[in-house]
């Protein structure tokens, strides 16, 4: 599924300073019944965002009009738990293009990269600085520069570089996905398959 290319993103950000945010919180299982990839953003963080009668929970950050933007900043070990790609879809569909944390769960990170959300892993200290900046000034902007692999807090000296492998970086910059790549080498794969023991 095609997604928007990613290059340099400057945006305000939404802080979620909670650790071990799992994919059951990002999108609860009861919203996984769709057969199409549509509308998952409405249920992003559903049970933290809404009471059981569907009225918004005032204190949850997505319901706080002070915060907004295309970058979600989460606590350590973001995206643990289930492999549901629906979590990454929900993040993307809600309007986020980048998630920042000091640590990501593997499958979630992978899923993000596959759907056009850039996971940016920063040091715990830098994460702390971002949270503090957002607390002091909710309009603080972050700049995520994919070509240069840096993230910085606008108007300050604070900046850090982040890692991403060249292949995935190229994909995100160009809006490519893995399936295109694999289909291109299908003959190699079929050759390989003939020699597998199982």
């Amino acid at each position: 599924m095609a997604y928007d290319k990613f290059n340099i993103l400057t945006s305000t950000a939404v802080p979620l300073p909670i650790e071990n945010v799992d994919t059951d919180q990002i999108i609860p299982a009861r919203f996984l019944k769709a057969t199409e990839r549509k509308g998952f953003g409405d249920n992003l963080f559903r049970d933290w965002r809404y009471h059981s009668d569907n009225t918004p929970k005032e204190h949850f950050v997505l319901n706080n009009p002070i915060y907004g933007g295309k970058i979600l900043v989460g606590g350590k070990n973001f995206g643990s738990g289930s492999s549901r790609e629906h979590a990454a879809w929900a993040v993307y569909d809600y309007g986020f293009r980048c998630v920042v944390s000091s640590f990501f769960a593997d499958i979630f990170r992978n899923n993000c990269l596959n759907v056009g959300v850039l996971p940016v892993q920063v040091s715990p200290e830098f994460l702390d600085t971002i949270f503090k900046s957002l607390e002091q000034n909710p309009k603080t902007e972050l700049t995520v520069d994919l070509p240069a692999q840096t993230i910085s807090i606008a108007g300050t000296e604070h900046s850090e570089s982040f890692a991403i492998n060249d292949y995935k970086k190229d994909n995100l910059l160009n809006g490519f996905d893995d399936i295109d790549y694999l289909l291109n080498i299908k003959e190699d794969i079929q050759q390989f398959a003939q020699n597998t023991p199982l």
Binding site: M1, S82, S83, R84, E85, H86, A88, I107, N110, N111, N114, V115, D177, D178, I179, L182
Partner: peptide
């Protein structure tokens, strides 16, 4: 475990 994009792959 894999995500749905990978299921497609």
């Amino acid at each position: 475990g894999i995500g749905t994009s990978e299921v497609e792959m």
